[in-house]
């Protein structure tokens, strides 16, 4: 069964001024328009590597939010307005 050999994904940092970010909503209540937004990228990497790096608590580990050179499994995905269904911030490449 799946124990260690799997990937984890989580939200990484994203600067909407220089990167194309996914847009998340912080509102507690569901509403038509979001009042408090945040920007994020998606980091995906092997679980066992991340565990060795940060232990169980990923969110208080700075190293978790950047890809190490010796970790080929790590990828950081930014929002691609042409392929993603999610709403993106301005695409800096355009």
């Amino acid at each position: 069964m799946v124990l260690h050999d799997y990937q984890v994904s989580y939200a990484g940092d994203c600067d909407s001024e220089v990167q194309s970010c996914y847009i998340g909503c912080d509102d507690e209540e569901e509403a038509d328009a979001c009042e408090s937004t945040y920007y994020y990228s998606i980091i995906t990497r092997q679980a066992d590597y991340l565990y060795d790096l940060c232990g169980r608590d990923v969110y208080s580990c700075d190293a978790a939010f950047e890809c190490q050179p010796d970790d080929p499994s790590c990828t950081i995905d930014y929002c691609d307005a042409t392929s993603s269904e999610d709403e993106c911030t301005n695409d800096i490449t355009s």
Partner: peptide, 14 residues
């Protein structure tokens, strides 16, 4: 195939 990626390949911890 249960322990393989064909079943589950990852987990979203967010």
């Amino acid at each position: 195939l249960a322990p393989t990626n064909l079943n589950l390949s990852g987990f979203d911890i967010d």
